[in-house]
Design a protein around this nucleic acid. Structure first.
Length: 894
DNA sequence: CGATCCCGCCACATT
DNA sequence: AATGTGGCGGGATCG
């Protein structure tokens, strides 16, 4: 049509037209003149004539597209339009033609007029930036679309971005709730924190990996733009999904991308992010994929996002001149410092809050408290990893020099990787099972990714994760996977964030990455009681012993980010106040421990809590599941373990087998490993770590020495071999752990160590921190505990689901994801992630560390019988993390 | 010619 | 099945 018109026009003259003409002529725009549309008839008016046009007309009558357009023009570009049109057009003589033409033009405003940015401005103009809290404005997509004269699709683009920043929230079909910018700072802050965490980890990770990576984008590297690139990656996972189910679908990549994009800015020192860098980071796929096409697509999306952000006044377009030339980039012009949490009153506990809040997106303006629904829905929030300061490194803050640039590039790469990984992880989380499998194939694919789940922050994990998960989780895949780190990593990551970067995966060894401080633990079973220690120990040990066992969960918890031991200590330990104190001690211990190579390898068998194991189907892993998480993950864990182990694949395999078999009996050797520190006493953190072997997986735990005694004894019994000072705790113990913090522990776990645990727990963590979030868990955990102990045997039967367990504490931090992977086993698997609240200052961190995942294959593993199963099962899947938690807690009691 | 990015097909999700 | 959502990328337009 257009052409058509044009052609006409052209001949006639290029007149562009005046408004007047337009109006007149345009039939379209009836408003002005009603003139009839003669012209229309005559003219080829596009709109009118076309069927669509007619519709439009009609529509426009109500809410006219045409009008809108015109309005837009006028509104937005009144000036321009006028100028343009007038000037040039005016020249023309041909009135008529002009008219026609004009109309066209009007009708067809230039692209700019139709730009998303403009549209967004219009959109924003309709709502107050800071609406009264009292008034809740709801936005009807249809209505807005018609008013603005655009297709609804466009509105989605805008709203999705706004939603990512919590300016609006999706409340119902076609309805969004306008929150305005009240929460913006909070959101940004959260994103910043999340970004840092991620970034940090990533960085570490990436660095590590860099080599591996080839940059696909090689050229792009340059992106290096100033620092911006670096950072972040974030994961974000936002959640928001309003609907509980929300998470479903791919996750909206646009939302996630938007958050990530924002994170990049917030993380970046320069506040300038080039498009390519951002695109790279956002490309899930990793570099590998890097298809050009993908990259292109991402860039397109970024433009969409950038347009909206620009309209919000958060960024502006700039060009970065690099060596090579100028690259398009965006500069953050929004707020940079976020003083405390914003102001908002919210009282949530710091720990989890941030994310949640965001996610919640309640209608209420700031507050995000969500409405019930949303809360649930939200999945993971951002996971942030913790920020490790250490990690950050120089990355570059300033780009200018070439060196820097290089660094930047480097960073960017890393970032990308990290990002990729994360995404993968996320995805994994969701999809995990399947994905995993896939992952083998496609490393990066993550479509939308998103996992609602939390991520693990842990930096290093990737590798681990990768390996581990895949393997562990999905046996099938595993085989393939192992080799591929990234891919694996992705998946695995999802599971455990924590993993250290260590490369071990591939090797199978747990190696430590030089760069990374963290250790990876394969098995989920491990737990760290003490923050610090763990790391060191872990590293060393882990690899060895655990490999398997620890798995992600633990790792994360324990490990934390590679980069930061400190962090870890903070984080890890942090949870427990004591930890700090302990740290030193812990470290020592760790050292000591390290010596111990895994000391324990005990077969879990018996040890595993019978209960759990016993339960067949559930597999569950232990209590944990029950708890809250239910993480179906177990599998992941397992996989992880396995993978991780790359080193010990065997173990994993064994596990699996066992799982299947469930034999609790089997002592799988090795499965349990305890790390202990010698220290038993002091505070230290000794951990005992148990790895679950096959079914047992759930059982493993680490305990601190202190408490250990009792615990130990218990464990010991189970584990014969242990000589280690450490105590092993059954899953239950774990439960207690977390719980420990809270009181819960005590009771529940009774069997073993409760007391001990509790003691320990108390020692280690002060949990209070945990608390906020934790609380729930705790409860749960407690519940769990009981179960745990018992279930020693697993069933064969339900082999399927592996479950992870988290310590309660962890749980809180962690998110569990469940994977269903049909592929995998058919069992749903759940993964846990650890979140680290990085930001949260608090203790929580420590907690996080703690998390461990347990996975068990269903079969026998743990089984906790009942509860777990329940939880695990579907619920887990469905439920959002929050829900899960809730559920868990509820369930746990059982 | 590269940077932008509109447009809308189409898949997936939800109802 | 209808409808809501939103990924995605062709290809047009801008500069």
């Amino acid at each position: 049509e257009n052409i058509f018109d044009r052609s006409r026009m052209a001949p006639k003259t290029p007149i562009k037209n005046e408004p007047v003409d337009l109006s007149k002529q345009k039939g379209c725009t009836p408003e002005r003149n009603p003139i009839t549309p003669v012209k229309l008839a005559d003219r080829p008016q596009p709109d009118p004539w076309t069927p669509t046009a007619n519709l439009k007309m009609l529509v426009s009558a109500a809410s006219p597209d045409m009008r809108d357009r015109e309005k837009k023009k006028e509104l937005f570009r009144p000036i321009e339009n006028n100028e343009q049109s007038n000037t040039p057009d005016s020249l023309q003589y041909d009135m008529v033609d002009d008219n026609t033409v004009d109309e066209f033009e009007k009708q067809r405003p230039s692209r700019k007029q139709k730009s998303l940015g403009l549209l967004c401005q219009k959109f924003l103009a309709r709502y107050p930036s800071y609406p009264l809290s009292t008034e809740k404005t709801t936005i009807s997509l249809d209505e807005v679309a018609s008013i603005l004269g655009v297709e609804r699709r466009r509105i989605y683009d805008i709203v999705n971005v706004l939603e990512s920043l919590h300016l609006v929230s999706h409340v119902a079909k076609n309805r969004y709730c306008w929150h305005g910018r009240h929460n913006l700072n909070q959101t940004l802050k959260t994103l910043q924190e999340a970004g840092e965490l991620q970034y940090g980890e990533l960085m570490a990770f990436l660095q590590h990996k860099e080599q591996d990576w080839e940059y696909k984008f090689g050229e792009r590297k340059k992106e290096t733009i100033p620092e911006s690139q670096d950072r972040p990656l974030l994961d974000f996972s936002e959640p928001d999904c309003t609907s509980a189910s929300a998470s479903s679908r791919k996750d909206k990549s646009l939302r996630i991308m938007s958050q990530k994009f924002v994170m990049l800015f917030l993380v970046s020192k320069t506040k300038v992010v080039t498009l390519d860098i951002a695109a790279k980071i956002l490309i899930e796929e990793t570099q590998d994929t890097a298809d050009h096409s993908k990259f292109k697509t991402k860039v397109r999306r970024l433009y969409d996002i950038a347009n909206v952000l620009t309209s919000l006044g958060l960024i502006k377009k700039v060009h970065v001149t690099e060596e090579r030339g100028r690259k398009p980039a965006f500069k953050w012009i929004g707020p940079v410092e976020f003083p405390g949490k914003t102001d908002e009153p919210r009282g949530h506990s710091p720990m989890s809050d941030p994310l949640p809040r965001m996610q919640r997106g309640a209608c209420a303006p700031y507050q995000i408290h969500a409405t019930g629904k949303q809360r649930f829905t939200r999945h993971a929030s951002f996971n942030v990893a913790q920020p490790c300061e250490g990690t950050r490194r120089k990355v570059s803050s300033e780009p200018s020099s070439p060196h820097q640039k290089r660094q930047d590039e480097y960073c960017s790469k890393m970032i990308n990787l990290a990002a990729v990984c994360r995404q993968k992880i996320v995805e994994d989380t969701r999809t995990c099972a399947t994905e995993t499998l896939n992952s083998g194939k496609n490393p990066g694919t993550t479509p939308g990714t998103t996992s609602p789940l939390s991520l693990l922050p842990v930096p290093g994990d990737f590798d681990f994760c990768v390996n581990t998960l895949p393997q562990a989780v999905f046996p099938v895949v595993q085989a393939d996977v192992p080799s591929i780190p990234l891919q694996n990593g992705v998946s695995s990551q999802t599971l455990h964030p924590s993993m250290p970067a260590t490369s071990k995966t591939e090797n199978g060894k747990p190696t430590l990455l030089p760069s990374q401080p963290f250790l990876c633990f394969p098995s989920s079973s491990l737990f760290m009681l003490c923050g610090d220690l763990q790391e060191d120990n872990l590293r060393e040990t882990l690899p060895t012993t655990e490999d398997v066992g620890n798995k992600s969960a633990e790792a994360p918890a324990v490990v934390l980010p590679a980069a930061c031991q400190e962090c870890s200590s903070h984080k890890c330990t942090s949870p427990s106040a004591p930890a700090e104190d302990e740290e030193p001690a812990a470290k020592r211990q760790a050292m000591e421990q390290s010596d111990v190579p895994l000391s324990l390898v005990v077969p879990k068998k018996s040890f595993e809590s019978p209960k759990a194991e016993s339960t067949p189907g559930s597999g569950c892993t232990s209590a944990v599941h029950l708890e809250g998480f239910h993480l179906d993950l177990a599998s992941p864990a397992a996989p992880l373990a396995a993978d991780k182990d790359s080193t010990r694949p065997l173990d994993s395999q064994e596990r699996e087998k066992r799982l299947q078999n469930k034999d609790p009996d089997e002592p799988s050797p090795g499965k349990e490993h305890m790390y202990k520190e010698n220290a038993s006493q002091p505070f230290l953190p000794q951990y005992v770590y148990v790895q679950p072997t096959a079914g047992l997986s759930s059982c493993n735990f680490l305990f601190s020495a202190k408490q250990a005694p009792s615990a130990v004894s218990l464990t010991a019994s189970q584990l014969p071999s242990l000589s280690v000072p450490c105590v092993m705790v059954p899953s239950a113990a774990l439960a207690s752990f977390p719980l420990v913090c809270s009181a819960t522990i005590a009771s529940p776990v009774s069997p073993v160590p409760d007391g001990s645990f509790s003691a320990a727990a108390s020692m280690n963590f002060s949990m209070s921190s945990l608390a906020s979030t934790t609380p729930v868990f705790v409860g749960t955990t407690a519940v769990v505990n009981p179960k745990v102990p018992p279930a020693p045997s697993v069933d064969h039967q339900q082999p399927t689901h592996p479950t992870l367990r988290l310590s309660p504490v962890l749980a809180r931090s962690c998110t569990a994801v469940k994977l269903d992977s049909p592929m995998c086993m058919g069992h749903p698997v759940t993964l846990l992630k650890l979140q680290q609240p990085s930001s949260t200052p608090l203790t929580p961190k420590s907690i996080r560390p703690a998390c461990h995942e347990a996975f068990f294959k269903t079969p026998g593993s743990l089984g906790d019988p009942l509860a777990w199963k329940k939880n695990e099962g579907t619920q887990t899947r469905n439920a959002s993390s929050v829900q899960r938690r809730l559920e868990i807690s509820s369930t746990s009691p059982d």
